[in-house]
């Protein structure tokens, strides 16, 4: 089991950041690497069990299922159903926590998954930096004060 943990500080109140990232279908609107996204089978984007089907800017297609969403904890948990990355048992959680000092947001994104040992380092870099940190960097730019 491989684990990744990435966290950052966003200079905006948690409620404002949550309003952006809560929408399970909104990856194209706030991340730099997703070109288009839709929710399968006419489900709502905040319906637990819904599947987002999105296309990366490099052309890869990914399907992810929403496992948990909490407006109380400001967190969203999902699993990967299909992806070009070659990972199994992939579950990730994006969570926000208010930083009262300065009214900012502590954002963490963690994932665990199985993969062939020889691809682990590559995947950890691709997901940790290329996806999670890249998305946080986009949020930091969006909310730059």
């Amino acid at each position: 089991m491989t684990k990744i943990f990435v966290s950052s500080v966003i200079s905006a109140p948690a409620a404002e950041v949550w309003a952006v990232v809560r929408d399970f279908n909104a990856l194209p609107a706030w991340t730099p690497f997703v070109a288009e996204s839709r929710i399968e089978q006419h489900m709502r984007a905040d319906q637990i069990g819904c599947i987002r089907n999105f296309v990366l800017r490099d052309g890869g297609r990914v399907r992810e299922r929403l496992l948990a969403l909490s407006d109380y904890d400001l967190s969203c948990t999902y699993s990967i159903l299909d992806s070009p990355m070659g990972v199994e048992n992939y579950i990730a959680k994006l969570a926000l926590t208010p930083i009262t000092d300065g009214n900012r947001t502590f954002a963490s994104w963690e994932a665990e998954f199985d993969c062939p040992l020889d691809r682990e380092a590559q995947l950890v870099g691709d997901i940790g930096n290329g996806v999670f940190q890249a998305a946080f960097d986009a949020l930091k730019r969006r909310f730059a004060r």
Binding site: F5, V6, S7, S8, V9, T97, F106, S108, Q133
Partner: peptide, 11 residues
């Protein structure tokens, strides 16, 4: 406490 990996700080 939680680590802030972006900058090696602490939440």
């Amino acid at each position: 406490l939680k680590p802030v990996t972006d900058g090696n700080r602490t939440f």
